[in-house]
Amino acid sequence: MSTIQTIAGQNEQHPDVALVEKVRGGDLAAYDTLVRKYERQIFRIAQHITQNREDAEDVTQDAFLKAYEKLDQFQGNSKFYTWLVRIAVNESLMRLRKRRTGKTVSMDEDVQTEEGSVPRDFADWAPNPEQNYSQAELAEILKKTIQGLPPGFRVVFVLRDVDGLSTEETAETLGLSVPAVKSRLLRARLQLRERLTRYFRRRTPAAHANPSSPQANTTSPAQRQPHGTEK
């Protein structure tokens, strides 16, 4: 079926297919539409990986330019968006490498860590805990928390849970196996949950007196017991 992309089980084309065909025919306005549609998402992914705004802007530009130049190589057996994300992820990793003055940066970096693979803090969260913070405070907490993850976990979480790609699409985009994506996703989710518990736990009246200091919240020994015990 060459470059014609269909949604599985249907004879319906993905809306991007028609736009891609138009761009191939020399219609730059069609590419403008594709750029508008995805530029914010590509920027967000680049910012998550590079952790640097300037780099994220450069990656966004470079990824769209590269996709435009290489559009003939797009086979249409994946979605245009996942193909574009793959380009952006590679560009982001290259930028990260440059920032670290040549140090190797890959999807596999730091994924061997066992940290956070087993829950340790079982304190329940306050109802709607995000409402205890201003938008700016919440954004800071969420940034700080996700920045602590290794890049290989961060990108899987962002693509799968924030961007909404399927496990298979995430695997294809990152050049990973499906089990590798599943393993990283579980650990990313658990690590984020563990770290957010510091801020979102149900507060005792004493701890509530100083809400700006999440470390001040004490956890009872019962809440801190390791989670290896079978019940």
């Binding site: 920027f43 967000r44 998550h48 995000e130 954004a139 940034k143 996700i146 979480f157 924030v162 909404g164």
Partner: peptide
């Protein structure tokens, strides 16, 4: 929470 809050605004 991560899905509903855009942390890197453009």
């Amino acid at each position: 929470i991560y899905r509903c809050h855009e942390i890197y605004e453009l």
